[in-house]
Every structure is written in C-alpha cells, then in structure tokens.
C-alpha cells in the first residue's frame, strides 16, 4: 500500500528541496515543547473531566465511584442554581465590558491626545493592570465596608452604615467596581493601539469638510478602529465570563453573587464532588465556547487580526 502511493506526490508536485524539508523539521521541533505543555495542562485534563463527569465520584469516598451516565449533567441543568449563576455571570460580563469599553475609550482618547507627562500616565495606567486581582478585591471590599471604608462617607445619599455586602444588587455592584477598575487599563491600551492606526489626514479632511467632533467620532474614528474594538471586546468578555478572584475575596459567593466559575470551584475543591464538579467544568467550558462563538458571529470579529496572521 505505502509503496504504491508514496511516489505519487513527488510526481505531481514540485520536488521538496532538502532545505525546505529541514526547515519544516526544525519548525516542528521548535514548536513541539510549546504544544506539549499547552496540551498537558488543557486538553488532557479536559478529556479527564469529560470522563469523570459521568461518574458519581466524591473524593471523600473514592471507592464508591459509580457510573451514572449523564445524570450529573441532568442534575446541573435542571437545578435553578446553575441557571442563576449563569445569569449573574452573563450580567457581570455584559455590564463590566460595556462600562470598560466606554471608560477605556475615553482614556485612550486622552492618552492619544496628551503631549505632556506621557510616562507618568503610562505608569499609572499600568498599576491597576499589574496589581494582583485579589489585592484589588480586598482594597475595594474594605473601601465599601461601613466599618473601615470611605465609600459610604463620600457618596451622597448613602447612609454611613449602609452594608454593601448585605444584599445582591449592591454586592454585585461592588464586585463589578473592582473588576472594572482592574481591567479598564488593558482595554484602553488595546483601544489606544487602534486609535494610533487612524490617519490624521483622514481626520483633517473630515474637519475641512465641516464634520463636527461628534460626526468625526462616529463616522471616521470608530469605524476605522473596528478591529481593535472587537478584539478588545472579545478578550475582555471571555475574561469577564471567567470571573472568580473578586467574588472569592469580596463575598465568597454570598448574597447570590456566585459566578459559574465559582460554583464549579466550590463543587470540586470545597465539597470534593469530583464527578459533579467535572460535569460543571465541561458545562463551563462549553459555555465559554458558546460565548466566544456568539461574539465572533455577532460582531464578525476578524480573528486574523487577533492572531496577527499575514
């Protein structure tokens, strides 16, 4: 079989030179370690999660492992808690990304126009980006508490002993504030890169033709940085959908602030329900895929730009 088919390609295609064959081999050798590492920690455990998800398997009683088919999935999908956490996760994602897009865009415009103190601005905007998310969570949690914080004292119309973490809405707002503070710089830097690509000539031409500032913004600037906006939204949305650290630190899931990532963590690590936890892991993975797919479809994101192909 092989002896019959092997010579065929050389007959039809140009002969592959030794050099390009060596290049092919070197290229594959150079990427091999990266591929192996990425698969070891993602694909392999994911397959294992799929396998474990069809068992009733608790680490507290590992010998009682029992094959239960899809019943873990059924339990999860029929439990209102699953849908409630999914709903709140989508809420976190939509609100934080929308707010960050607006604030990030304003920041990017300022940074693009500013001619003084560029180093100072760059430095300060990188501090929230670099700071540990858990630290941001603590800083904001303490800021919102009535015992030691300052938010109640600064906000008009809020009584001094208002407990932000006593009910869902205000607790969700506090979590979102921390998330937005920490990740807006990333958004604004991506948007700044997009702004830098817009030619000044085009803006001047629009101005000469009598376009107002508002018209220039909507007809020239935003359409021309569409790729940058879409990439920033895609990255941040998927990041926000995985929100975990801030919830862990600020409410520990209390007051129905729990996200889908947090629910999965709680089932697996705190309650040792590896079977159920794995089913939730698979559902989490699938929902991230779905969100990515929807964003790419909805906004027709040019993935080649994100991957800097070509």
């Amino acid at each position: 079989m092989t002896t019959l088919t092997a010579p065929a390609p050389t007959g039809n295609k140009p002969v592959i030179s030794d050099r390009s064959r060596a290049e092919n081999r070197l290229g594959q050798k150079l990427i091999a370690p990266a591929i192996v590492l990425m698969l070891l920690v993602t694909a392999f455990p994911m397959l294992r999660a799929i396998y474990l998800s069809v068992f009733d398997y608790s680490l507290t009683a590992p010998d009682d492992r029992e094959f239960v088919g899809l019943s873990n999935y059924l339990t999860a999908l029929t439990d209102p808690l699953f849908w409630q956490t999914t709903g709140i996760t989508v809420l976190y994602m939509v609100v934080t990304v929308a707010v960050e897009l607006v604030i990030g865009f304003i920041f990017a415009m300022v940074m693009h126009r500013v001619i003084f103190a560029r180093g100072v601005i760059r430095t300060s905007i990188l501090i929230p980006y670099g700071i540990v998310t858990v630290v941001s969570g603590f800083a904001w949690q303490f800021a919102f508490t009535s015992t030691n914080g300052f938010v109640n004292g600064w906000l008009p119309g809020i009584s001094a002993d208002f407990n932000w973490f006593g009910e869902t809405n205000s607790a969700v707002i506090a979590i979102m504030v921390s998330e937005i503070w920490k990740t807006t710089p990333f958004m604004s830097l991506l948007l700044l890169a997009g702004l830098a690509q817009i030619s000044e000539d085009m803006l001047e031409a629009a101005q000469v033709d009598g376009a107002t500032w508002w018209q220039r913004l909507w007809k020239v600037i935003i359409p021309n940085m569409r790729a940058a906006i879409m990439v920033a939204v895609l990255f941040r949305a998927l990041d926000a959908y995985r929100i975990f650290d801030n919830i862990f630190v600020m409410t520990n899931g209390a007051q129905k602030t729990e996200s889908i990532s947090f629910l999965t963590y709680r089932q697996t690590i705190e309650q040792f329900q590896l079977g159920m936890g794995s089913a939730l892991s698979v559902l989490l993975f699938l929902s991230v895929l779905l969100v990515a797919f929807l964003i790419v479809r909805l906004f027709r994101v040019d993935l080649a730009a994100a991957r800097q192909e070509g």
Partner: peptide, 30 residues
C-alpha cells in the same frame, strides 16, 4: 520558518488564552 502545523500553534494559543481555567482545577487536582 515555513512548516506544517503553524496554523495549529496559533489556533491553539488563541484557544488556550480564552480557556476557563476553573474547569481544569478538578482534573488537575486529581
């Protein structure tokens, strides 16, 4: 370099950058 599998690395990196890390901790823990 020109080699087979270039697309694969790029696609895989993109996928992993978006991977929900929490979904891995159960199996990794085990």
């Amino acid at each position: 370099l020109e080699f087979k599998g270039k697309k694969l690395v790029l696609t895989m990196s993109l996928a992993i950058a978006m991977f929900p890390v929490v979904s891995l901790i159960g199996p990794l823990f085990d």
